[in-house]
């Protein structure tokens, strides 16, 4: 769901001064309503599930899903699967940052690097990462390596692209002002260009992780390695374990949510929001 969350939550209109007040009361109201809606939705689901109109194997009762969820948490299988998935996603994501961030900076700073990589990137970027899964399976087998490389492939482009446009869009006025104050190349880079590009870099990190998270689940499903949350849901299909499937979906959504809101949300709050540099991200 890479692009949806970034463009969520319209913060338009609200004037700066009364934001905290109205936001709080509005937040409480919508939280309350959200709860009601979700309870009603759950009741509807439960009613259909209990009616016996669909086979219980296809539409398990919520209590059963919860039971399975707790059981899998307690016996550690769910945690083990999550650890495998997290290991792959973090490995691939960090690799993507290590490659994409410097490459994006180099592309923005040196025309020759940009001239060489930009055509390649424009040609590779439209290839969905999943299209490479079968190829990588042939080349690297069905282990961690394939999944990690798919994650890496998926996450590198948003990281690199955002860094590139971030460095390019650093306000030239800042460079002039810093130059006038005697900043040398080194200071200019670390104290002006990097913080100046940070809104884009953080957007890049965020998009890269979301892409990575999508890629890891998909790759685990297609490449059918032995462990991992993607494998769990796909494997559960074979045995009609819809309860396991739904339980794993909850974990997948939960982990994605935690990273999106807590990790990247707080990173944004600590930096670009504090500096008043938040921009509406482009997808």
């Amino acid at each position: 769901m890479s692009d949806t969350i970034i463009t969520s939550a319209p913060k338009t209109g609200a004037s700066k001064n009364n934001v905290s007040m109205s936001d709080q009361s509005k937040g409480r109201r919508s939280l309350w309503r959200a709860g009601v809606v979700l309870i009603i939705a759950a009741c509807c689901y439960e009613a259909v599930a209990r009616s016996g109109y669909f086979a219980p194997a296809l539409m398990p009762k919520l209590s059963l899903v919860a039971q399975t969820f707790v059981a899998m948490l307690l016996d550690g299988t769910m945690i083990e699967h999550s650890v495998f998935t997290l290991y792959r996603v973090m490995f691939g994501f960090l690799l993507a940052v290590l490659v994409g961030l410097p490459l994006g900076i180099l592309m923005a700073r040196f025309a020759a690097v940009e001239g060489f990589f930009l055509p390649l990137v424009s040609a590779l970027m439209p290839i969905p990462s999943f299209a490479l899964v079968p190829l990588f399976m042939l080349w690297f087998g069905i282990g961690n390596l394939t999944t990690i490389l798919i994650v890496f492939y998926a996450a590198t482009f948003p990281m690199m692209f955002n860094t590139w446009s971030g460095v390019r869009s650093v306000n030239p006025l800042w460079l002039r002002a810093a130059g006038a104050m005697g900043a040398d190349e080194n200071a200019l880079f670390w104290k002006v260009i990097i913080p100046g590009a940070s809104p884009f870099i953080i957007t890049g990190l965020r998009q890269a992780f979301l892409r990575a998270w999508i890629a890891v689940v998909g790759a685990e499903m297609i490449a059918a390695s032995d462990w991992g949350l993607g494998w769990v849901i796909f494997d559960a299909k074979e045995f009609l374990n819809t309860d396991v499937m739904l339980a794993a979906l909850v974990v997948i959504g939960g982990i994605g949510f935690v990273f999106e809101k807590m990790v990247f949300g707080s990173l944004e709050k600590a930096t670009i929001q504090r500096w008043g540099m938040s921009r509406v991200a482009k997808g």
């Binding site: 769901m1 999508i214 689940v217 998909g218 499903m221 993607g230 794993a248 997948i252 959504g253 994605g256």
Partner: peptide
Amino acid sequence: APIPGLAY
């Protein structure tokens, strides 16, 4: 929305 589409 936060659940990767493919997981469905």
